[in-house]
């Protein structure tokens, strides 16, 4: 039974609760993500979206409930955290590239030092993914010399180098100018089409309609509504969802 579920379920959150001091930031979160599923998470600022997906690779610690990633339950055990981080890649709003390393070194660093891959092989892997995000020609530059959109694509390539089974995106386009958003979303759409399991916090509703299997709406620390994108946008059930959608679609 245990095995059967873990084969299909990439991420499983059961009754997850978390507090920052007195502030209850995640309330009874229940969410199952099947392998290959694409989830888009949206909701007003401060609703706990980032906190939730950061719990999945243990950048934040949950205090109650259960988080199982690819069959591994997250606990204090550092070994398990390591195993989970092997399977999960993450892209951040502010890219978080390493500014003292070139684009190529950013991509090969973890391959060489965490996966113990020989340098030349790591370089081949990195170049492969840089080609996929369409910036192989920037490999020798430093992140500070790239545009925001290029930096985010490097960050995606850097995560993909570790061949994760699950990708987490935390507002990957919200620090970008409009003309750069598309180049990043294009890469993400391609990734989705290849069957990557994705959890994506974003307010790009076009993207959600195009690739998401499910859209999740969070407000006041809880999941308020979840539905397929078609029904979610055309026929929202909850008043707070309606209000939120009217705000982001009409501005």
């Amino acid at each position: 039974m245990e095995n059967a579920t873990s084969n299909e379920l990439a991420v499983q959150l059961s009754d997850v609760n978390k507090w920052y001091g007195d502030f209850h930031v995640l309330k009874d979160i229940n969410l199952n993500v099947a392998a290959g599923e694409r989830i888009v998470i949206c909701g007003p600022s401060g609703s706990g979206k980032s906190t939730m997906i950061r719990c999945i690779n243990r950048l934040e610690e949950h205090q109650a409930g259960q988080i199982i990633v690819n069959g591994i339950e997250l606990t204090e055990d550092l070994k398990r955290i390591d195993e989970v981080r092997r399977e999960v890649g993450m892209c951040f709003q502010h890219f978080n590239l390493f500014p003292h390393l070139t684009v190529l070194e950013n991509c090969t660093l973890a391959l060489i030092w965490v996966r113990k891959m020989p340098k030349s092989e790591a370089k081949d892997v990195a170049m492969h993914y840089l080609e996929r995000v369409k910036i192989p020609e920037q490999a020798e530059k430093y992140p500070g010399q790239l545009s925001g959109g290029q930096q985010q694509r490097v960050a995606i390539a850097r995560s993909l180098c570790m061949s994760p089974k699950i990708m987490l995106f935390d507002e990957p386009t919200s620090a970008l100018d409009p003309e750069m958003i598309k180049e990043v979303l294009d890469v993400m759409v391609e990734l989705a089409e290849e069957g990557m399991t994705m959890l994506c916090v974003t307010h790009e509703m076009g993207f959600a309609k195009l690739v998401a299997n499910r859209v999740i709406f969070m407000d006041m620390s809880q999941i308020v509504e979840e539905n397929n994108p078609h029904d979610f946008f055309d026929n929202p059930q909850n008043d707070r969802t309606k209000l939120f959608l009217s705000q982001i679609l009409n501005h």
Binding site: F92, N96, L109, M162
Partner: peptide
């Protein structure tokens, strides 16, 4: 964010300190 990116890539404390 630099610490978090290193952690997310599975780097240990010493590796992220020494390399990043």
């Amino acid at each position: 964010g630099q610490y978090e990116a290193a952690q997310a890539m599975g780097m240990s404390y010493w590796k992220s300190m020494g390399l990043i």
